[in-house]
Amino acid sequence: MSPNYEELKAGLEAVLAAAGYRDLTVRVAGDASVGATRRTVFIDVNTDTNSIPAVAQVSSRASQLALPMTASDEAGLVNMAEDAGVPVASMLAASDDESLVGGPVVIARRVDGLTVPRHVLRSLAEIAGAGDALAAQCGAALARLHGVDLELVPESVPRMAEPTPAESYVAELHRLLDNLNHPHPVLRLGVNWLGRNLPDAPTHPSLVHGDFRNGNLVITPQGLGAVLDWELAHIGDPMEDLAYLCMRTWRFGQNDNVVGGFGSLEALQAAYEAEGGLWRQQAFAWWMTARTVWWGIGLAFQAWNFAEGRSSSIVHAASGRRVVELEYDLLNLIDEQGGL
C-alpha cells in the first residue's frame, strides 16, 4: 500500500533532514499523478524564512519496467544534465531507503508550467510557430544530454550498450516479454523483426533519458521549462530518445505533428544537428519500432499487475485495452520499413 499523506510527510522530512536541511516541515499538497513506474506528489518544503514548492517522486516496487538505478544516482545524473544545459527540475534530495516513504524517492524543485499532454497541445496550438519552437528546444536539449561525458555518469546507471545498444535492447525486450505471464503474439513478432533488422551502431553510446516525451516535459511560456522523470535513464543509442519522442502514442491524436503532437521532425532534427548531434535515419525508424514494442509490453504489464491484484488503479486496468494501439502502430512501422 502507498503511504498516506501523514506517513509521506514524516518520511519526506526525514529524507530532507538526512540531506542536510534543518528545521523544516513538509506540507503534502496532493498527488500529481500515479504513473507506470512511480507516484508523483506535490509538496511544499517550509522553513522559518521561506517555502520551496517541490515535487517528490516515489518509485513503485511493483514496476517491472524500472531499471536498477539508485535514486541518489538518479539525482546525480539530473545534476549532470543540468550542468550540460538541459532544463531540469533541480534536485533537493534523494534517498534509496525504502522504509521512509515506501520506495526510493527523489525530491526536486517544482517548475511551474503545463505537463498534461492535452493541455500542452491546446496551449501551443494558440501560438503560431510555438510547436516547432518547442520541438527545436527538445532537439537541442537532447543533443546536450547525449554529449555528456560518460566518464562522469554514476556506476549504477544501467549500461545497455553491449555488444550494441540495439542488440542489448532486443535482449531486454525478449526478457520482458518472457516475464509477462500472458501471450502477446504481435509484440513477439515485433521483437523477432527487431532482432533481424538491427540498425548500425552509434559511433559511441550516450547517456539516454529513456522516457523523453510529451507528458514528462514541463512547458512554460518560454517553451521547455524542465525535463522530468529520469528513472529510466541509461547508457545507450542517442536515437532512442529522439524516436521515442516521436512515437504516435505520444502525439495524443495530433498525428500531423510527429514530434509529441506539437512539432515537425524537421525542426527537431535541425536543432539536434545544430547542437552537435548526429542524426541516423535508419536507427531512428528502428528505435521507434523498438520503443513501440516496449510501451506495448509496459501497458501489458500494467494490465497484468491489475489482473493479479498488485495494482488497484483503474488506469492500469484500462491499459489492457490499449495494448492493441501499440500493436497496430507496430505493424504499420514494420510495413513502412519494408515489411517482414
Partner: peptide, 21 residues
C-alpha cells in the same frame, strides 16, 4: 501461436501476419 512465434521462423511469421493484422 506465441510459442511458435518464439521460434523465430520468418516464413511462419509471413504466414501468420494476415491473421494477426
Amino acid at each position: 501461436l506465441d510459442a511458435k512465434l518464439a521460434e523465430g521462423d520468418r516464413a511462419f511469421e509471413v504466414a501468420a501476419l494476415p491473421a494477426l493484422r
